[in-house]
Design a protein around this nucleic acid. Structure first.
Lengths: 206, 206
DNA sequence: ACATGAATACTTGTATACAAGTAATCCGAC
DNA sequence: GTCGGATTACTTGTATACAAGTATTCATGT
């Protein structure tokens, strides 16, 4: 996710097993799991390749996340109630504060974690664990690109601001606004991807 | 999927391996894959349980399928063009005809396959393979229930008719209508589930 | 020089042996 | 008769040995 393993790089079960001091069996299971997220692809009898960032798959994953999160955010906004305000409000405000700090520090890894945490908290309000899992699965396609984008553009403060607006819309029970803001929130990905691909073309495919 | 393995039943890697004449290793991989689809759950050091049909998970999966398929069907309807009409129309018409036959014969397994095929063909028109995969993943939650419903209610002809209407809406480029019809198409699941649960309560949970 | 093909050094796929943990059973003490 | 605890017979988790396939290398013949 942090590009410590470069897209296109070949990795080997033996190497990983040895470096982690376990046998191949659990390593294989982990690999299968990452294959599911399309972060790896197994080349039979040849090795395992760190998946290239597929422009097509990124756009597909974005479309899915957009549909699902809009659905969840709309529910969260519609159901946001006075009780929840007192219980969750503080937690979310604190989370946003931490995000501002991470943005100020330029700590990409922590920022991404908090970013995910924000989206997760809102989706949990919609009470659909399966949806959360699916969105989580889409991470693989998206997060490496987001990591690159954050490293390149340092636009973390702007993202925090968008989160704040999103939360305001939800707290105001404005489903429509929340949906539209979320759509905008995902919107820039397209242009960013083109530029990032121009910078490191050997990471990309499609 | 056909309830040949009953919800709640315990299965064992050794047994499966022997009955399939393979070792535990590939059986374990298959089990992990089905765990991902929530059709199985591993009880460490005790066995593997065929998952109960979770009312909550079924509803969650239905919500997800509804969001995603509506997104895909809307695109398919919007992009349906004259060229596609000549190429795909015949294939889809033939598929619907086969479905009518399966409905007449009361062949649930074939009918379910053709039902999936119809949805798949339309989604393929939207050109989003990842979305197709996710919808496919939701099968686990939904198809066992659909199988029970078809066995119980024998309402297959009605479903074919709904498919025909859906296809008409798409061919007429009517995105809105396609979306609404699809929502209706998923609509009855709720009532059916309550009744089916009353018939075989030991298959259900939540 | 160059094409061809066998040998080699890898890889993942599969089978099996062993470790560790669960739960029921059985036996004995009270 | 009943409770408690060690034993036993399972299970899955992990490690390792072997099978099968890939791609390179290197020798050989033209």
């Amino acid at each position: 996710m942090t590009l410590a393993f470069e897209p296109g790089q070949l990795i080997y079960e033996n190497q990983l097993a040895e470096s982690l001091s376990v046998s191949r069996t659990p390593v294989r299971e982990a690999i299968r799991s990452l294959v599911n997220e399309c972060l790896l692809e197994v080349l039979p009898q040849r090795g395992t390749r760190v998946a290239y960032i597929s422009v097509k798959k990124v756009l597909e994953a974005r479309f899915i996340r957009s549909l699902l999160e809009q659905g969840a955010f709309r529910i969260a906004a519609a159901e946001w109630s006075a009780e929840k305000k007192t219980v969750s409000n503080k937690a979310i405000q604190r989370m946003l504060e931490e995000q501002r700090e991470a943005a100020a520090d330029g700590d990409i890894t922590v920022f991404l974690q908090l970013d995910e945490a924000f989206h997760r908290v809102i989706m949990e309000e919609a009470g659909n664990a399966t949806l959360l899992n699916v969105v989580y699965q889409m991470r693989g396609h998206l997060n490496r690109l987001r990591y690159m984008a954050l490293r390149q553009y340092r636009h973390m403060p702007q993202i925090v601001e968008e989160h704040e607006r999103l939360f305001e819309a939800i707290a105001a029970n404005d489903s429509e606004l929340a949906g539209r803001l979320l759509e905008l929130h995902f919107g820039k990905l397209n242009d960013e991807m083109s530029e990032l691909r121009a910078l490191t073309p050997h990471y990309f495919i499609d």
